[in-house]
Design a protein around this nucleic acid. Structure first.
Lengths: 248, 248
DNA sequence: TTCGGGGCTTGATCCAGGTCAAGTTTTGGA
DNA sequence: TCCAAAACTTGACCTGGATCAAGCCCCGAA
C-alpha cells in the first residue's frame, strides 16, 4: 500500500487510536486494489472475510430479493463498510458494487479481530463505528416508515445541502440510484422533484438549487433523530475524515 | 436484585463470558424495577444513561415524527435494548414503553463502558450483540423496501411459527402493533390476513393456524438474508436465552 | 350484570405511488 | 464526430394500501 493511502486510512476515527504496531500488523495483511466501475465487490450471502475501506470513488450497497433490488447506501471515501458481517464472521446482508473507478482497501477479518482483542482503544473505536452504522440504519428505517416519499426527498436534499448556506450543490449520484435509496421509482422521483419546485427547489441535471430553505424545512421537518447530527450545525470543526454519502 | 434475576441476566450471551468480579461490579450499580403496562421507559431524544434488560413482560420500541408513530420492535425477555445509544452516549433514537406488567434491569452506561475497557471477552460479547442488532435492523429495512405488505405478513408468520412444525401458535402481540411493525395500517393487516386464507392461514383472535406451509413459503419466499437465521433449522440446540420477538 | 371503551373487521372511497409506454436528453465508446 | 445505449422525463393509467365510517366483539370496571 502506498504511504499516502496508509495515512488516509490511519486518519479514520476507526484507526486513529490504534497503536503504530497494531496498525502496521493490520495493514501488512491488507490489499489495496483498484476497480473499474460496475464491479461487484461482494455479494450478499457470501462469507465476510475482509473489512472494506473505500479510499477513492464510490461504492453502492444494495440488496436484492425475488428479482427486485434496492439501494441501501452509497459509501464514499474515506469510510468502511460491512464491519458487522466481518465481526460476527457472518454472511453479508448486502451486496456491494463500484459506481465509478474506485480504490478499496481490504483488511482481513481475522487480523481485525486480533487487533480488537489486543487494543482496548481500537475495540472502542470499532464499537463506536458499529454503533454509528446501527443508528444510521435505524434512521433510514424510521424515515421509510414515517415519511412519505416527497418528505424523504426534501429531507435528503436538506441533508445534502449541508446545514450552512449551501443553496447550490451537486447530487453526486444518479437519480435512479437516489430513487432506489429513497424507496421510490425513478418516475416518482422525477415527479417529486417537480412538485418541490414551488418550494423553491430546482434540479437541472446534477445541479440542485435551493432558493427557499424554509419552505423545504417545512416539508421535511428535519430532526436530529431522523436525519442525523450532520444536519445540525454549520460545517463541523474537525476534519470530516469520514463521510457516508447516502445514509448509514 | 434477586439472585434468580441475576442468574438470568448472567445467562445472556452478553454477560456469559464476563468475569464474576466484573459482573458483580456491573450489577452493583444496577436497578431492577417493575412497571405497569403502558409506561414510557425512555423517550427518543433523551440522553442514554442506562442499558436496559427486559427480564419479564414485553417492551415496545417505537419512534414518532410529525404526529405519526411506528413500532420498530418488541423486546421480550431476556434481552437488552438501546445498547448503541448507551455506548456512544448519544440520544436515543427510539422510545420504549411497556406493553404489559414488566420488569426491567437498568445498568448504568458508565459501568458498562468501564467493564468494556477492562474485559476483552466482554468487549467481544458487546460487539457481537451490537452487530446482531445492526443486522436485525438491516433485515427490517430490506423487508420494508423489497417486500409488499402481504409478503411481509407471510414472512412474519413463518418466522413466528418457527422452522419446525409449529402449525399452530399464538400471535403474542396486539394486531394493531403488528400492523405498525410491519409498516401498514390495522385495516390493511386485517385484509391481508383474510387474503392469506387461501394460502391455508387462519387467524382467530390470537391463535394462528398454518395448514399449508408450502403455500405460505411461496408467498413469503423467506431467505436467511431477510428473515434471519432463526428461520433456518428446527429448534436451536443451546438454550435460547435471548429472544427478540418482533425483529431486531 | 351492565356499560363503556378500545381493538378488530368490513365496506366504500380516495390517493400516493407504481406501472406502462413514449419521447427526449445525456453519455460513453468506436 | 456519430451512434447506440442508458438515463431521465412526461403522460396515461392502474393498484396497493390509506382513510373514513360504521358496526361488532371482547374485556374490564362499576
Amino acid at each position: 500500500m502506498r504511504n499516502a493511502d496508509l495515512e488516509e486510512i490511519r486518519a479514520l476515527s476507526l484507526f486513529r487510536d490504534l497503536s503504530e504496531e497494531h496498525f502496521a500488523a493490520l495493514t501488512r495483511g491488507a490489499y489495496h486494489q483498484s476497480f473499474p466501475p460496475q464491479v461487484t465487490l461482494i455479494e450478499e450471502g457470501q462469507q465476510a472475510d475482509f473489512l472494506h475501506v473505500v479510499t477513492e470513488g464510490a461504492v453502492e450497497l444494495y440488496a436484492g430479493w425475488n428479482g427486485r433490488e434496492t439501494t441501501m447506501a452509497v459509501v464514499r471515501p474515506i469510510s468502511t463498510f460491512i464491519l458487522a458481517a466481518c465481526i460476527t464472521d457472518a454472511p453479508y446482508l448486502m451486496s456491494a458494487r463500484t459506481l465509478m473507478p474506485s480504490r478499496v482497501a481490504l483488511i482481513p477479518g481475522s487480523d481485525l479481530r486480533a487487533a480488537f482483542a489486543q487494543d482496548v482503544a481500537f475495540a472502542q473505536a470499532i464499537l463506536r463505528e458499529l454503533a454509528e452504522c446501527y443508528r444510521g440504519v435505524v434512521r433510514h428505517a424510521k424515515g421509510l416508515k414515517l415519511r412519505a416519499s416527497r418528505e424523504r426527498l426534501a429531507a435528503y436534499l436538506l441533508r445534502q445541502s449541508g446545514a450552512g448556506g449551501g443553496a447550490v450543490f451537486d447530487l453526486q449520484i444518479e437519480k435512479r440510484l437516489l430513487a432506489s435509496y429513497l424507496g421510490m421509482t425513478p418516475e416518482n422521483l422525477s415527479r417529486s422533484i417537480r412538485s418541490l419546485r414551488d418550494a423553491g427547489v430546482s434540479v437541472e441535471g446534477q445541479r440542485v438549487t435551493i432558493s427557499n430553505r424554509a419552505a423545504l424545512v417545512a416539508i421535511a421537518q428535519p430532526t436530529e433523530l431522523l436525519d442525523g447530527p450532520a444536519c445540525r450545525g454549520a460545517a463541523e470543526d474537525g476534519a470530516p475524515t469520514q463521510r457516508r454519502f447516502a445514509g448509514h
